[in-house]
Nucleic acid binder design. Structure first.
Lengths: 221, 221
DNA sequence: TTTTTACTTACGGAAAACCGTAGTCAGCAA
DNA sequence: TTGCTGACTACGGTTTTCCGTAAGTAAAAA
């Protein structure tokens, strides 16, 4: 079984809940931190001692507070930990339930398990630990169906940037000029109009304002 | 001190964390539920036994799942509990940190304390319990400044409805027609244009799309 | 009672979004 | 090598938003 497990979670009552639950079911050594940067320090220290963490359980979002953070989110943390020690297994444990976002986390940074916070998630964390220990992937069952049913969506960074610029109040003409100045391609007003039209069809939006509202609700921007 | 405390929280690891923490610091009887409807049943049962809950600690949002729920959120739960047993103190414990929303909860349904989930919130829950026991109000310190700093905002239901209709993709002309048909006043296109202009000035939005984005970020719609 | 202020409504013009057509170019398939 | 497809770009027309002005009305202040 795993021997050294690191938990990164900012909410203290969740930290306490996870640790209490894991101690009932497993025998491994558990450490827990509230800041991603502290997690990185622990991982580095463990590597120096030749006793690396073989499992990381991390939340996705970490509230900013008075401390300046270099790493501020669970996906960034996972990316760094996998760089430092590629054999480490990563289980993400978050309230996030947007299928596309979660699916992408398996690709990049390359997590091994995802448990959606819920009424039975303590039991799911245990199953996730057992599953990723066997080198299999784990996904909360409440998400599994949703993710398999999600249509292939070819929304790329350009599209997100475009909608974001609209949401920030820029006119299409201004966006075109900015894209041209920055070397973002394509940059013509017409192309922007056509791309926005495609996005509206895809998201079933009636106009640009509606599109921005839908995309915000989906959490893509 | 309080004698019977009810905790309503859907995430099991948070439930476990809160209960574990409270047992370290207090001596009262603790019950916990994952569904608001179950909380109501417990409150009613306790009233029948003439041993009512004198404190409720509740989350704000409860994930919908396979069960059909009559009461689906912490504010609805608080409202019902205060109807059933007005002396019960209510502490809300949530990830929500939008100042206006939280401020409103003190007015309606009339909560007595609010703790924002965070790194030190276990300690804050304890302070909140002691504070509301003394018939004082408790507010997470991280919010206190933000709430006091919030300007008086003269946005009324009409404004919210208007922005919401835009966010739902309706044209200004369509909104005018709908308002006229429903007897919403004022309903002319010109008045809607002028009201939107005022809102844009108030929120410092460059256009209607920007306005919708800002208002969504603020959590007003 | 009179005057002032604020809001509603209508309207016209400018700006921006929306929409369709056409030409060009690059990449892919036959 | 040739033909086809998809994307980019330009442009013109229509629709919608934005903006300002003016008239009417109701409420508040003098």
């Amino acid at each position: 079984m795993f021997r050294k497990v690191l938990i990164a979670e900012d909410i203290d009552s969740i930290n306490l809940g996870i640790v209490t639950n894991l101690k009932k079911s497993f025998d491994f050594e558990i450490a827990h931190v509230k800041y991603c940067d502290d997690a990185i320090l622990k991982v580095k220290k463990a590597l120096l001692e030749a006793l690396p963490y073989d499992l990381l359980i991390t939340d996705l979002s970490f509230k900013p507070d008075h401390r300046n953070c270099n790493i501020c989110s669970g996906d960034e943390l996972a990316r760094e930990v996998l760089k430092l020690h590629p054999p480490t297994k990563i289980i993400m444990y978050s309230i996030e339930d947007r299928p596309l976002k979660i699916k992408n986390f398996f690709n990049e940074p390359g997590i091994h398990g995802y448990v959606c916070k819920g009424r039975e998630s303590a039991r799911e964390i245990n199953k996730a630990i057992e599953t990723v220990y066997k080198n299999e992937y784990y996904l909360s069952q409440s998400l599994d169906y949703a993710i398999k049913g999600t249509p292939v969506m070819e929304i790329d960074d350009y599209d997100i940037r475009l909608i974001n610029e609209l949401a920030n109040g820029l006119l299409q003409d201004e966006i075109a000029k900015n894209f041209k100045a920055e070397g973002v391609f394509p940059a013509s007003l017409s192309s922007i109009e056509k791309r926005l039209n495609k996005l509206k069809i895809y998201f079933k939006a009636k106009n640009s304002t509606h599109l921005v509202a839908i995309v915000k609700d989906l959490g893509l921007i």
